[in-house]
């Protein structure tokens, strides 16, 4: 028979950081050997573990295609979406380490409490505020739309915020994702409340805590230039908004 289209399979070792709040006082690492194809993703490996080996493994995922932002996790020490991380891009001669994102309260296995993250997001007022009431749509030029295009791509997966060493320290910092959300409206020509958001981000836990370590830009699964967006918000807080 022709072997056309046959994909190689191999054994991949996953070492997953497990935590069961009902029985464990501390998280511990557990390894699983999984038969995988080079076309598989880390998420497929987690599915195989959960479905065939240990049904108690807990993790979030919804769409499984890089849009919903549910399955951000720390894969080999880097924040990634499990559904966008291909096995062929990892060094499978070594085990693949998978753990929950850092800096948010761990609930179980790979699941963290996202509420502090969303609280910071809500605080920057991430919605259009305008007094204009046009009969049809709000008009905007291509250039005006382009100004904040990059920050519209955010899917709120928290990969950036939980890769930020300043956020890890005490969790008081707004974090990159909230600043990205603010950037999206601060630089929107239709919005009228940019100054309100800048005042919020001008506070002690606002943009000035950013140390430009670029962890957030490196972590973003959507390729948003997060650190650049934060710098633009800093500039706007100093010189005013230039759309």
């Amino acid at each position: 028979m022709g072997e056309l289209g046959v994909v190689d399979s191999f054994t991949v070792t996953f070492i997953v950081r497990r935590f069961n709040p009902e029985t464990d006082s501390e998280p511990h690492w557990q390894d699983f050997d999984v038969e995988m194809y080079s076309t598989d993703r880390v998420l497929d490996g987690l599915h195989k573990i959960k479905w065939d080996q240990d049904g108690s493994l807990s993790f979030r995922r919804s769409c499984a295609h890089g849009i919903c932002g549910s399955d951000a996790m720390r894969i080999n020490g880097r924040n990634r979406l499990a559904c966008k991380t291909l096995i062929k891009d990892l060094d499978i001669s070594k085990p693949v380490y998978v753990e929950a994102i850092k800096g948010l309260p761990l609930e179980k296995d790979l699941i963290v409490d996202m509420e502090p993250f969303f609280a910071a997001y809500r605080e920057v007022q991430p919605f259009l505020q305008t007094s204009a009431k046009p009969k049809k749509e709000h008009l905007q030029s291509v250039e005006q739309r382009e100004r904040f295009d990059d920050t519209t791509k955010c899917i709120l997966c928290a990969a950036c915020t939980t890769s930020c060493p300043v956020f890890w320290t005490d969790g008081q910092y707004f974090g990159p994702a909230a600043i990205v959300a603010a950037h999206r409206f601060i630089f929107d020509s239709r919005d009228e409340e940019a100054q309100v958001r800048l005042d919020i981000l001008n506070s002690k836990e606002g943009v000035w805590r950013c140390r430009t370590t670029f962890n957030c830009s490196e972590a973003c699964p959507r390729g948003i230039e997060v650190t650049k967006a934060i710098s633009e918000v800093k500039q706007a807080a100093i010189r005013g908004v230039r759309r």
Partner: peptide
């Protein structure tokens, strides 16, 4: 615009 100490520190 109000004078913000953190901003002042950053500029300094």
């Amino acid at each position: 615009r109000r004078l913000k100490l953190e901003r002042l520190g950053w500029i300094f």
